[in-house]
Simulated assay, not measured.
Amino acid sequence: MADGSGSSVDRSRRTLQNLAKTLGCAPETFFGETAPKYLADAEELLQLMLSITDSSQRRRVLDFAQTVKAASDARIGDA
């Protein structure tokens, strides 16, 4: 229910699914041994991004992250 209605469990599930989709991971990533560090890193990255007031500087950070991701994907593809 896009209007925010439904149980808190349903809203939480949808929120985690949306967050996982945005981060490019499975919702299960948020549970288990690596979840706290993974979430802490994601939170720090978001806080840093939001604290950069200059849009061109935010774009540089995003470009860098995309470059790192592409390099990681290329290494995985070579394996």
Score class of each variant (00 low, 15 high):
T67L: 14
T34N: 14
R58W: 01
D54P: 02
G24Y: 00
Q17V: 06
D10G: 12
D41Q: 12
I76S: 07
D73M: 07
S7I: 02
A42P: 00
A40W: 11
R13T: 03
G6W: 01
G24A: 01
Q66K: 12
R75D: 05
E44F: 15
Y38I: 10
P27Y: 00
F30Y: 01
F64L: 09
P36K: 02
S5R: 05
K37R: 15
E33K: 11
S5K: 06
E28M: 10
L23N: 00
E43V: 10
V61D: 00
M1C: 10
K37I: 06
G77A: 14
A74K: 08
M49N: 14
N18S: 10
E28I: 13
Q57I: 06
E33F: 10
T22P: 04
A70I: 04
G32P: 02
R59H: 10
I52R: 09
D78R: 13
T67S: 13
E44W: 15
L39K: 11
R13W: 07
G32S: 02
A74T: 06
G4A: 02
S51G: 05
A35S: 02
G32R: 02
D78S: 12
K21S: 07
C25S: 03
P27E: 00
A40L: 12
L45N: 07
Q57M: 07
R59K: 11
T67Y: 14
R75I: 06
S72G: 12
D54L: 05
S12W: 12
V9S: 12
S12Q: 13
K69A: 12
L48R: 14
D54Q: 05
R58Y: 01
L50D: 09
L62Y: 04
A42M: 02
A20H: 00
R14Q: 06
A70Q: 10
C25W: 01
G24N: 01
Y38D: 03
A65F: 08
K69L: 12
K69E: 11
T29I: 09
D63I: 15
G4Y: 01
P27H: 01
D54T: 09
P27N: 01
E33D: 10
L46E: 07
L48E: 14
M49R: 15
V68Q: 07
E33H: 12
D78I: 08
D73C: 06
D78E: 14
C25E: 02
L39S: 06
N18R: 15
P36T: 00
Q66E: 11
K21H: 09
S8C: 13
D78Y: 13
A20K: 01
S5P: 03
T53D: 10
K69T: 08
T29F: 04
I52E: 04
R59P: 03
N18K: 14
S51Q: 03
A71S: 07
M1Q: 09
R58D: 00
A2P: 06
G32Y: 03
Y38R: 08
E28N: 06
A74M: 07
D73I: 08
E44P: 06
L62A: 04
A79Y: 12
Q17L: 08
A40M: 12
T34P: 08
F30H: 00
T67I: 11
G32W: 05
D73T: 08
D73L: 09
Q57A: 12
D73H: 05
A79L: 15
M49Q: 14
V61F: 04
A26S: 13
